[in-house]
Design a protein around this nucleic acid. Structure first.
Length: 445
RNA sequence: GGAGAGGUGGCCGAGUGGUUUAAGGCGACGGUCUUGAAAACCGUUGAGCAGCAAUGUUCCGGGGGUUCGAAUCCCUCCCUCUCCGCCA
């Protein structure tokens, strides 16, 4: 959500954002509703003011014990007179009351329209963000590491994992339908090891580890920008009006919603490991093979809440990218960093980078991380503020987030990059300490 | 799931229909005093919307209603606590 004043004063920038991000948002309708809303409120305020004035007068007339009433009696007026005068004033209120009621009905209606339209206005992308229609417009920023060249015919993670008994897709599908899986034995251990490596890394870098609810109120989905628009992607529990989160970002970012934080407590840096649930509606037939696109996975997520300062949040953006890169570098996985263009970045984002890790079976880099900076877009929706000790004003925070690691998707590059000619898998050095010293996953061992 | 008690500003807490202002305390901020601080004393101090401003208006868990007038009465939903039941 943007500031309506900002929208009024920067309609051209907002219009450009709507076009560049290719979102559907009727800005003219919003501006019209905004004007109606303000006119309506001014009128209603005026009538309410009048009614209040009359009511307080009636209060005087109806309360014989009041000083005012006693003073009137002392001036020689009779109680009956005063009572009758009160009745006369009371009779005048009917018309005003009706006008207020009409205006309040309109207020409710206009207010709902206004809110719905406000939710569709996109955040204005940073000047650095490339303009582009879709992921084809994303720009590579840098690369790290070299994809391995094999002196044998490499297999993909499904073939390797199934043969080693560490991935069991057939039974996962039996249990839960397509896009489900089991990790077993050393596979399950490696999954846990990765999450723990990521968590230890991020905690060492100053983030508070948090465990979070994964089934949250719909307003948290709206507050973080997933609703409206993303309902099809989420598992929603109708009976409880709650949704399963697709990322711990939702819980971590919304946890301070409706609060006014102290400025010197910022930045707040949080990390959580959680299961993430995604329906993958609209992705039918896409990435159906293996562990790439699945309905539930585990992810360590990092979130930063900071002051409303573009330079500061940009620095945090670089920092949370470095945090993720540190984990990939520890795992010695080649990756590249992309700056995501306007058409691919999502409604609420000011700036966004993806990290793609080399996946031999895809013969390409595949997305494993996504780092976003929102400005105050999420904070406005969440009513997440801090008190600026200099200006004494309450200000909306800036929010950012990035993946630290998501597994099992990251198992794809690990298994495939670390495979040996005999079908065994060398355990990356960084994970061995978390796997009881295991150096290799092989059949019959 | 059953029964009961509750939800009031950053925090605690008074307030059961009316002299247009949510008492009081704590905390925070400013001042006096002091070499400096503490203490004491004095003062300031909730959020949103509209408006250039003066100002107006809304908000006592959310929503709706009764009334000339609602923190206060009614309906409904949410949440917290206590006891019972069930339970990893």
């Amino acid at each position: 959500m943007l500031d309506i004043k900002f929208i009024r004063e920067n309609t051209d920038a907002v219009r450009k954002a709507i076009k560049d991000k290719n979102v559907s948002c009727d800005l003219d309708a919003l501006l019209k509703v905004d004007e109606d809303r303000r006119n309506n409120q001014m009128q209603a305020d005026q009538y309410r003011s009048e009614l209040k004035e009359l009511s307080s007068q009636i209060g005087h007339y109806k309360n014989p014990k009041s000083k005012w009433f006693q003073a009137q009696l002392a001036e020689g007026r009779s109680e009956d007179d005063l009572r009758a005068e009160g009745e006369t004033i009371q009779a005048q209120t009917g018309e005003i009351k009706q006008k207020i009621k009409d205006l309040e009905d309109a207020e409710r209606d206009i207010g709902a329209q206004f809110h719905a339209l406000m939710l569709t206005v996109p955040q204005v992308p940073s000047a650095k963000t490339p303009v582009g229609p879709d992921d084809s417009g994303n720009v590579e920023v840098r690369k790290w590491g070299e994809p391995r060249t094999f002196d044998f015919e490499p297999k993909d993670h499904v073939e390797l994992g199934t043969a080693l008994g560490i991935i069991d897709i057939e039974r996962g599908v039996k249990l839960a339908g397509s896009r489900n899986y089991l990790l077993r034995g050393a596979g399950a251990l490696m999954h846990q090891a990765i999450l723990r490596l990521a968590m230890d890394t991020i905690v060492e870098r100053g983030f508070e580890p948090v465990t979070v609810p994964v089934l949250v109120r719909d307003e948290m989905m709206e507050g973080t920008g997933y609703y409206p628009g993303g309902e099809e992607q989420a598992y929603r529990c109708e009976r409880d009006d709650k949704s399963l989160v697709g990322t711990a970002e939702v819980s971590l970012t919304a946890m301070y919603g409706d609060e006014i934080l102290e400025m010197d407590k910022l930045p707040i840096k949080l990390a959580a490991v959680s299961t993430c649930f995604r329906r993958e509606a609209g992705a039918a037939g896409k990435d159906t093979h293996g562990l790439y696109r699945i309905h539930s996975f585990d992810k360590v997520e990092q979130v930063v809440l900071c002051r409303a300062d573009d330079d500061e949040s940009e620095q945090h953006h670089h920092a949370i990218l470095a945090n993720a890169e540190a984990v990939l570098q520890a795992l010695e996985l080649p990756y590249r960093l992309l700056q995501v263009c306007t058409g691919d970045m999502g409604q609420g984002k000011v700036e966004m980078y993806d990290i793609e890790t080399w996946m031999p079976s895809r013969k390409s880099y595949g997305e494993t991380h996504s780092a976003s900076r929102f400005g105050d877009f999420q904070a406005r929706r969440l009513n997440l503020r801090y008190k600026d000790t200099d200006t004494k004003k309450n200000v909306f925070c800036h929010t950012l987030n990035n993946t630290v690691i998501a597994s099992p998707r990251i198992l794809i590059p690990i298994i495939e990059q670390y495979q040996n000619a005999d079908g065994s898998i060398t355990v990356p050095k960084a994970l061995r300490g978390y796997m009881g010293g295991m150096e290799k996953i092989a059949n019959g061992e």
